[in-house]
Amino acid sequence: MKVLIIEDELSLQKSIQQYLNAEGNTCDCAPTYESAYQKISMNTYDCVLLDLTLPDGDGLELLRHLKKLNKTDGVMIITARDAVDQRIEGLSLGADDYLIKPFHLSELNARILAIVRRSNFAGNNLIVFNEIEIDLQTKEVKVNDKVVYFTRKEFDLLLYFIANKKKVISKAAAASHIWGDDADMADSFDFIYTHIKNIKKKLLDAGCKEYFHSVYGVGYKFAEL
């Protein structure tokens, strides 16, 4: 997967690049409007991460340019500005999704995957990880062809972990994925533990292998050891 990261904050750009590279993606970086303009004109990407406030231009202009070229690159806006109208403008200009800073890399990764999946495999809504099969359309999870029932939050969490497989996901990231802005509620971190325990149990009962691993109480990793 080829991703273009348009972000002027270099350390953030580097972190994103590291994280995505480790997933086996190729990342191009553009810290300025000029360099981004050239890159999107010359190449085609699976997904473009677009920061709206660039030192030498408006990110929305880049989006307009991209759409004028009739490219099918998925576009994800990342911005510190969350003025409602700006969001809507970005989406109406053809961005696929937006993420407001600060965000967790695992969240970013999961969203990129969702964008790419939507544009690349139109109609194919199946995610398969070993014996686990997830149908995004019907929100159904099958383990060894047997349906396992999950609550909505459990389903979201499972999907989130599979999207970030082999990565450690902090409890904070998981909590904000489920509860959004309310993730700071006194003990919301503890619920992640409860949820994961439930998911684990349901998967094991269905004859699934053990994939969830706790990492020193900070987070969890979904991986085959």
Binding site: E9, S11, L12, S15, I16, Q18, Y19, A22, A80, K101, P102, F103, H104, L105, S106, K167, V168, S170, A173, V215, V218, G219
Partner: peptide
């Protein structure tokens, strides 16, 4: 966002 991403990176 930088702090968050660095924490996420460290966690790996």
């Amino acid at each position: 966002a930088v702090i968050n991403s660095k924490l996420d990176t460290m966690l790996q």
